[in-house]
Design a protein around this nucleic acid. Structure first.
Lengths: 118, 118
DNA sequence: TATTTAACTATAAACTTGATAGTTTAAATA
DNA sequence: TATTTAAACTATCAAGTTTATAGTTAAATA
């Protein structure tokens, strides 16, 4: 009861009982939403395909975010023992659900950014 | 054409043409989504009501995010010449649209965090 | 032996966020 | 009269995150 209200954004409305310590803290990091969208839109992506699509991300940040999202069970990493090595990232079931949940946001963002740049 | 593809997450799918330089960069900062949700869920909130609802945010970060969201035309700031001073934050029309776009995400987040903490 | 390529790792600088104390204003209180 | 009170911040420095850039690893090939 009281434990819950501490981490509530609102008591009247149950839209959000989330704390920054949870998954929202990961999604609020720079690049997370774009990484999830990119992988989702392309079904599978390799590390350097992501690097290109996400124009300007640093390799450290990309590697850190991928690990974090993998640990959170949002994305899956598959590596193939080839030379040069090949690693493919895709969304898990949970990641695909999350992607659906962020699509309205991404649409809103692209329509707004579109308006400005057109 | 080429200008667009540089900042595209995907060319096949128009769900996201957004770059981290735009509004997504602001929304990807820590606390932004929770601030927008909190204000939206409560219609209007004062600075220190936000501070309490957003348990653990620092005053600097809250002040910075509020200014940034105000500049981006997501929230509106109204101050009243009283002692002690009163300032109320609410969503603009654009902010309200954004909030609608974020609701599926917030619901997904709270159902997932809920599972973990129950 | 040197080269090639994907997928990172290492490191130091730049930028963002956090913790804590302090500022401002004027009415209410001691 | 001096002190207290309260909201909405600002100032400052420490801590954490992101960037830029160079380097590592592996094995087939020139």
């Amino acid at each position: 009861m009281q434990k819950e209200s501490k981490r509530c954004i609102s008591r009247e409305d149950d839209v959000c009982l989330c704390s920054i310590e949870g998954i929202i803290g990961i999604l609020s990091k720079k690049w997370s939403l774009l990484i999830i969208s990119a992988i989702g839109n392309n079904h599978k992506l390799r590390y350097n395909e992501l690097e290109k699509k996400l124009d300007k991300i640093s390799p450290k940040t990309l590697a850190d975010r991928l690990k974090e999202l993998e640990n959170a069970n949002i994305i899956k990493r598959e590596s193939f023992a080839e030379i040069p090595p090949r690693v493919e990232y895709s969304l898990t079931k949970e990641g695909a659900d999350l992607r659906k949940a962020i699509m309205p946001l991404m649409r809103w963002v692209s329509s707004r950014d579109g308006k400005l740049s057109s």
